[in-house]
């Protein structure tokens, strides 16, 4: 997994509360057999004017010019900001896969739904909680700035803006460590790689038939 240390990136402001996982990635895309490729369908119902499906080429669809991701100002954004209770609704991990696949590294909001929050860390995606007034300040600066970029400094636990705002945030030390080192559950287990190899070599001696 890509380590998350200091990330500076363009910001997409999604000024909505209670963004649910069905809005992040609608259910027709759950038929996919992949974990990748959901980026073009992120926020599908808001992003396009016509209905999409897995077998419809998103390039042929009509984009909603009003939607934040479709304007030039926010193209290539890597940080999303949103309002309260982001990621509520169904438990689909596809929501995080879609955000990551689109290119987002983090979403900043005043609060997150539990399952979405947990799923995010499994995928090296950072759900960063700030106070509601702090998030509001980010929205305001985004509205007035031509090319609004944020810096998330995870080791120092700060978010800073070009205009000089700087907010501190809290994060569980274990999760912080996993993000910084790019460790998901598999990554954590692979920290025991030497123990696994040692077990295998013992086993190769005592039960050689288990190894082709």
């Amino acid at each position: 997994m890509q380590p998350f240390t200091i990330v500076t990136g363009r910001v997409a402001p999604l000024d909505r509360a209670n963004v649910d996982t069905d809005a992040i990635i609608p259910k027709q895309y759950l038929k996919s057999i992949k974990k990748t490729g959901f980026g073009p369908f992120l926020f599908d119902d808001w992003r396009y004017l016509d209905k999409g499906d897995l077998d419809i080429d998103p390039a042929t669809r009509r984009k909603n010019p009003e939607f934040v991701l479709n304007g030039p100002k926010h193209a290539g954004s890597t940080i999303l900001i949103a309002r309260e209770n982001f990621g509520c609704g169904s438990s689909r991990e596809h929501a995080v896969w879609a955000l990551s696949d689109y290119g987002f590294r983090a979403v900043i909001a005043p609060g997150f739904a539990d399952i979405f929050f947990n799923n995010s860390f499994k995928n090296g995606f950072f759900p960063l909680a700030l106070r509601a007034d702090e998030v509001d300040a980010l929205f305001k600066e985004s509205a007035t700035s031509a090319d609004f970029q944020l810096t998330i400094d995870l080791p120092a636990q700060t978010v800073s803006t070009p205009a000089g705002l700087k907010f501190a945030f809290e994060i569980d030390p274990f999760r912080k460590d996993c993000l910084i080192r790019g460790l998901d559950e598999i990554g954590l287990t692979l920290q025991h790689a030497d123990a696994i190899r040692a077990y295998e070599s013992r086993r190769r001696d005592t039960a050689p038939w288990l190894f082709a």
């Binding site: 997994m1 974990k35 990554g187």
Partner: peptide, 24 residues
């Protein structure tokens, strides 16, 4: 942490596991 000697794979539950490997 338990060692797994044999994994059997079929088409319904494996595609996203392989995709996860690729992604990482």
């Amino acid at each position: 942490l338990i060692y797994i000697d044999r994994q059997l794979l079929h088409e319904v539950t494996s595609p996203q596991a392989f995709d996860g490997l690729r992604l990482a």
